[in-house]
Simulated scan of single mutants.
Amino acid sequence: MYSKEEVSKQKQAFWTAFGRYMKPVLSADGEIISWSNYKTGIPGIFFKLDADNRQAVVTILITQSNPQLHTTFYELFRTQQKMLEAALGEHDWEWEQDITADNGSTVSRISRQIDGVSVLRTEDWPVLISFFKERMIALDEYWSTAKYAFEALL
């Protein structure tokens, strides 16, 4: 069993390792970016990575507080679903509209997870890094074109 401090240090070590691994990878637009803290440039839309002692998750998170814009963002992702899936090379992402987040706010998310991996086991890190790398590069490729439709809504 790990203490909270040990868990925190191990997670920090993983994200540092992931950042170093991804540092030489440029965005689809040829820019240097922070892959673990991806900036979409659209308020209320985030690409999130998370790993704990049981699973790893890549999430497109919609947190837009304006309910109409929130719904419009989700519907636009749905409209672009085939384009998103083509970039990802996957069709098994989970789509959840208007769910309650831990803080009580309403969010929507599109996510993909793998189970049975742990950020606390360094032997799982190659699997985690590969899982995150492939999907973030694909999301970035998708976003380099898709973002303009979202910008037009603002």
Results as ranks from 00 to 15, higher is better:
residue 49 L to Q: 12
residue 53 N to Q: 13
residue 109 R to K: 11
residue 148 Y to S: 06
residue 90 E to F: 04
residue 86 A to G: 10
residue 36 S to M: 12
residue 148 Y to W: 14
residue 34 S to C: 12
residue 93 W to N: 07
residue 78 R to S: 10
residue 60 I to L: 01
residue 32 I to Y: 15
residue 52 D to Y: 03
residue 90 E to H: 03
residue 54 R to N: 10
residue 154 L to S: 05
residue 80 Q to I: 11
residue 51 A to F: 00
residue 125 W to S: 03
residue 131 F to Y: 04
residue 5 E to W: 13
residue 137 I to Y: 15
residue 24 P to V: 04
residue 2 Y to V: 11
residue 15 W to F: 08
residue 93 W to R: 11
residue 142 Y to S: 14
residue 58 V to A: 12
residue 73 F to Q: 01
residue 35 W to S: 06
residue 40 T to C: 02
residue 113 Q to P: 12
residue 115 D to N: 12
residue 56 A to E: 01
residue 131 F to I: 07
residue 84 L to P: 06
residue 154 L to C: 13
residue 16 T to Y: 05
residue 136 M to W: 12
residue 20 R to H: 10
residue 140 D to H: 15
residue 48 K to A: 13
residue 15 W to Q: 02
residue 5 E to V: 11
residue 88 L to G: 07
residue 26 L to Y: 15
residue 55 Q to R: 09
residue 20 R to F: 14
residue 7 V to A: 12
residue 133 K to C: 09
residue 89 G to D: 02
residue 20 R to L: 13
residue 135 R to V: 13
residue 15 W to T: 00
residue 50 D to Y: 14
residue 116 G to E: 05
residue 3 S to G: 08
residue 5 E to C: 06
residue 139 L to T: 10
residue 22 M to Q: 04
residue 96 E to T: 09
residue 24 P to Y: 04
residue 112 R to H: 08
residue 148 Y to I: 14
residue 110 I to N: 04
residue 56 A to Q: 04
residue 151 E to V: 14
residue 79 T to V: 12
residue 135 R to I: 03
residue 5 E to Q: 10
residue 98 D to G: 06
residue 66 N to Y: 03
residue 134 E to Y: 13
residue 61 L to A: 06
residue 102 D to V: 08
residue 113 Q to M: 10
residue 114 I to L: 06
residue 33 I to K: 09
residue 128 L to I: 05
residue 5 E to N: 08
residue 73 F to R: 01
residue 22 M to N: 11
residue 125 W to I: 02
residue 153 L to R: 04
residue 89 G to W: 06
residue 151 E to G: 09
residue 139 L to Q: 15
residue 41 G to Q: 00
residue 8 S to D: 07
residue 78 R to V: 10
residue 128 L to P: 05
residue 101 A to I: 01
residue 126 P to Q: 07
residue 49 L to G: 13
residue 57 V to G: 07
residue 107 V to Q: 10
residue 41 G to S: 00
residue 137 I to A: 14
residue 11 K to H: 09
residue 104 G to D: 02
residue 79 T to R: 09
residue 100 T to D: 01
residue 119 V to P: 02
residue 62 I to K: 00
residue 8 S to R: 03
residue 95 W to I: 00
residue 43 P to M: 00
residue 3 S to W: 04
residue 77 F to N: 03
residue 8 S to N: 10
residue 116 G to D: 03
residue 72 T to G: 05
residue 23 K to L: 11
residue 8 S to P: 06
residue 19 G to V: 07
residue 46 F to K: 09
residue 146 A to P: 11
residue 44 G to I: 07
residue 59 T to K: 07
residue 100 T to P: 05
residue 9 K to R: 15
residue 16 T to N: 05
residue 154 L to F: 15
residue 109 R to M: 04
residue 45 I to N: 02
residue 77 F to K: 09
residue 132 F to C: 04
residue 9 K to W: 04
residue 94 E to I: 08
residue 143 W to D: 10
residue 47 F to C: 04
residue 45 I to P: 03
residue 17 A to F: 10
residue 59 T to D: 12
residue 44 G to Y: 05
residue 80 Q to P: 07
residue 109 R to H: 07
